[in-house]
Amino acid sequence: SGEEFIAMYTYESSEQGDLTFQQGDVILVTKKDGDWWTGTVGDKAGVFPSNYVRLKD
């Protein structure tokens, strides 16, 4: 389980282990570690910068 966040911006990365997503995607955040959080979008999982998302209303 985790908290749902909304992507405010598209995040694209070629780094292994990074979670890429489109603006407006719902991200289920499973771990918060400083500026880099872990989460899932659909069947993808990985880390992403926390300043790209906001808490879902």
Rank of each mutant, 00 (worst) to 15 (best):
A45L: 11
E4D: 13
T38H: 05
Y11C: 06
S1E: 11
L19E: 01
E3T: 11
Y11P: 05
G2R: 07
K31Q: 14
L28E: 14
G46N: 00
S1H: 09
W36G: 01
F5R: 04
L55C: 03
R54S: 04
D35A: 12
V29Y: 02
A7W: 00
T30W: 12
V29F: 00
I6C: 07
G46S: 00
D57C: 12
W37I: 01
F21A: 02
V47R: 13
L55W: 09
E15T: 13
D43W: 04
L19C: 04
Y52T: 03
T10W: 02
V53W: 01
K44W: 05
L55D: 07
S14T: 12
F21P: 04
V41W: 04
T20V: 09
G34Y: 03
K31I: 05
K44Y: 13
T30A: 07
I27D: 10
T40V: 11
M8V: 13
W36R: 13
K31L: 06
D18V: 12
K44R: 14
G39L: 02
L28W: 14
K32G: 01
V53C: 07
V47N: 08
F5Q: 03
Y52H: 05
G34A: 07
D25L: 00
P49Q: 05
L55N: 08
F5K: 01
N51R: 10
E3G: 05
D25S: 08
D33H: 09
P49D: 01
P49L: 02
G17H: 11
T40W: 14
T10N: 14
K44H: 05
L55M: 09
V26H: 11
D33V: 13
E15D: 12
F21R: 02
T20P: 10
D25A: 07
D25T: 10
S1I: 15
D57A: 07
V26T: 15
E12N: 09
G17S: 11
V47L: 13
V47D: 11
E12D: 11
A45Y: 14
K32D: 02
T30F: 09
W36L: 11
G34N: 12
V47E: 08
L19V: 05
E4M: 07
E12A: 09
K32Q: 15
I6S: 08
G39R: 00
E15Q: 15
Q23P: 07
M8Y: 02
I6R: 06
D35E: 13
K56R: 08
W36T: 08
K31V: 08
S14C: 12
S13P: 08
S50Y: 08
I6K: 05
W36I: 08
W37R: 03
D25V: 01
Q16W: 07
R54A: 11
T20S: 13
D33N: 09
K32L: 03
A45W: 12
Q23T: 14
S1R: 06
E4W: 08
D35M: 10
F48D: 03
I6F: 08
F48K: 03
T20K: 11
Q23K: 14
R54K: 04
S13A: 11
F48L: 03
E4A: 06
A7F: 00
E15I: 10
V26L: 13
V41F: 14
F21H: 03
R54T: 10
V53T: 04
V26S: 12
E15Y: 11
Y11Q: 04
Y11H: 11
T40F: 05
D25G: 00
V41Q: 11
L55S: 15
S13Y: 01
K31Y: 06
Y11S: 02
D43L: 10
D43S: 14
T10M: 07
T30Q: 13
D25M: 04
E3S: 08
G46Y: 00
D33K: 06
D18W: 07
I27R: 01
G17P: 05
Q16D: 10
M8T: 08
E12F: 08
V47I: 12
Q23A: 14
V41Y: 08
V47G: 09
S14L: 12
T40I: 06
T40L: 07
Q16V: 10
K56E: 07
L19T: 01
G24K: 00
D25N: 05
G42A: 07
I27Q: 03
G39S: 00
R54I: 04
S14I: 00
V29C: 03
G2Q: 12
D25R: 00
T40S: 15
T30M: 08
E3A: 06
G34R: 09
V26K: 12
G46I: 02
D18M: 14
A45D: 13
F21S: 02
A45F: 03
G17I: 07
W37C: 07
K44G: 10
P49N: 06
D35S: 15
N51K: 11
K44A: 05
I27K: 02
L55V: 10
K32I: 03
S13N: 01
Y52S: 08
G39D: 01
D35C: 06
W37N: 02
V41S: 14
E4G: 01
G24Y: 04
E4H: 05
Q22K: 11
Q16A: 12
Y52C: 08
L28S: 13
M8E: 13
E15S: 14
D25E: 14
N51G: 12
T38C: 09
A7L: 00
F21C: 02
S14V: 13
L55T: 12
V29A: 04
Q23L: 06
G24L: 01
Y52V: 05
Q23E: 14
Q22S: 13
G2S: 14
W37E: 04
E4C: 07
I6P: 00
E4F: 07
T40P: 02
V29S: 02
Q23W: 03
T40M: 15
F21I: 05
T40H: 11
K44I: 01
W36E: 10
S50A: 15
P49M: 01
M8G: 04
L55K: 06
A45M: 13
E15N: 15
E12G: 08
D33W: 01
S1F: 13
D33A: 11
F5T: 04
T10R: 06
V47P: 00
L19P: 01
L19M: 04
I6E: 10
K31T: 08
V41P: 00
Q16Y: 13
F48H: 02
T40G: 03
S50N: 15
E12Q: 14
G39N: 00
L28P: 05
E3L: 07
E3P: 04
S1P: 06
D35T: 14
D18F: 13
E15K: 15
E12M: 09
W36S: 11
L28D: 04
L19F: 06
G17R: 06
D57N: 15
Y52L: 10
T38L: 05
Y11A: 04
L19R: 01
L28Y: 07
F48C: 01
L28Q: 13
S14F: 06
N51Y: 06
G34P: 07
T30P: 02
N51D: 09
E4S: 08
L55G: 15
I27E: 01
V47A: 11
F5V: 06
G2T: 15
F21N: 02
A45Q: 10
E4V: 06
L28K: 15
W36M: 14
S1M: 09
E12L: 07
K32W: 03
E12Y: 08
G42D: 10
P49E: 00
G34C: 06
Q16N: 13
E15V: 13
D35F: 09
G39H: 00
V29Q: 03
E12W: 12
W36N: 08
S50H: 03
A7M: 00
V41T: 09
V29W: 01
T38M: 08
W36P: 03
V29D: 03
T10G: 13
G39E: 00
T38V: 10
E15R: 14
G34S: 05
P49G: 01
G42V: 03
E3Y: 06
S14Q: 15
V41I: 14
